[in-house]
Design a protein around this nucleic acid. Structure first.
Lengths: 231, 231
DNA sequence: ATCGCTGCTGCCATAAACTGTCAGCAGTTG
DNA sequence: CAACTGCTGACAGTTTATGGCAGCAGCGAT
């Protein structure tokens, strides 16, 4: 393997691109399996080659977008990961999102060289069977409401069978083993609440956007959690 | 200037792309200012990194088209599906495959139009927590054996704690709730068998390929199942 | 079949590059 | 202020890259 260094530089670039937030040199050094001093040298090399990597003391490194690394192709493992993920989505998500996953994979396949295209079809990784409760609500519509940051009016029955009607600000959707759970700010309770999609009796999408950004809501919600959702 | 080699490899790639006809190694060596011997080594390095360069004796080198990922367009739903799938892989698969999923997503993000790139970060779909048993075997090595259609020698303990040693032909890997299951043709039993990866005590990859195609094995295995694996 | 061109590999000595450790300076955050 | 982080220099040990040489094998034309 006489590619040690070049390969490592590409890995480093890829790692930097994977993180969006600033990453400390120490972390990068560990991930690439190299000493901190060498990491600094690697960064300098990449910068010398034109990569727009910004480093700030006390912060870390960030890669400015738009830098193309030449061997821009998926590895076999990456394709396997994409296929496996898509197969899980096909099984666990509602039909419409499942279809979107298949479409996305097809688009990726379309730009792949012939021999790599085969790898998508012949990927040997499969997802175990998964029973999924029927959604009574239209999950696609919920996803749309989240994207558009629009208020949802819910007609909801909780586990005790109590039926309530509330306006909520939807900001995330959790895919669990058997159910999907909508996470939202509840205007009624003035707090975060979650709602199983199979218990949503009826639903209406309002015309108006709710007054906050969904990413901010998500961030605040995370801070209330003991175990944070990763990524 | 510790970038001599990496930079030269990029130049080489660019030069190969510029020519469309086959180019001889001698020409490439001159253009990159290096000896012929080194040029051969450089080509080997690029090929090792995944570049699809074809060399024919008496002809020269050609870079197969389609090596670089072109810009791709995805719908919002397709991106959501890709992100959700990748997040599931990050949680359910072994670290290496999980990382590959994240890398793939980052590569997709890199060729996305700017305004779409944000949607990857702000996707509001999440995967519920998932406890996963530790693998005792190296699942990455198993995936590799499947890809290469190579014989695996297993040291395996079944649920009764009986330990056996067998040669198998691995052809698929199932990702279930808590475990991963290797599906293979067992030479000992002359039949299909499945093996939980957390029960594999030890494992060795043989040099030789097994005498059949893994896709055929998969097809035959499916016919023995009551509930077929979809897709 | 023979010849020239070309890809490809192994070997080896030398030169160049890389690497880790240690030490120190400077900027940011809390 | 303290803790963290980026950044640079120097040095010694190690690794790697390189070029030259020799030889084998596939391709095309003579």
């Amino acid at each position: 393997m006489p590619v040690a260094r070049s390969e490592r530089l590409l890995t480093l670039l890829q790692t930097l691109r994977r993180y969006r937030r600033p990453v400390t040199g120490t972390v990068l050094a560990q991930e690439t399996g190299v000493s901190l001093r060498t990491l600094y040298r690697d960064i300098a090399s990449l910068q010398a080659q034109g990569a727009m990597i910004e480093g700030e003391a006390g912060i870390g490194y960030v890669l400015k977008p738009g830098f193309m690394l030449p061997p821009m192709m998926f590895s076999e493992e990456e394709l396997e990961a994409l296929v496996l993920g898509s197969r899980w989505v096909a099984r666990a998500a509602e039909p419409r999102l499942a279809g979107a996953g298949a479409d996305a994979l097809a688009k990726i396949a379309a730009v792949l060289p012939d021999d790599m295209r085969d790898m998508i079809d012949s990927a040997a990784l499969f997802v175990g069977p998964k029973r999924r409760d029927e959604d009574s609500a239209d999950v696609s519509a919920i996803r749309r409401a989240i994207r558009l940051e629009r208020i949802l009016e819910l007609h909801y029955g909780d586990e005790q069978g109590r039926i309530s009607r509330r306006r909520v600000w939807p900001f995330a959707l959790g895919y669990f083993e058997h159910v999907r759970v909508l996470m939202a700010w509840c205007e009624l309770r003035q707090d975060f609440r979650h709602f199983r999609t199979d218990r949503i009796i009826d639903m209406a999408l309002h015309e108006v956007r709710y007054p906050r950004r969904r990413t901010v809501l998500l961030k605040e919600w995370r801070e209330t959690q003991d175990v944070p959702i990763e990524r």
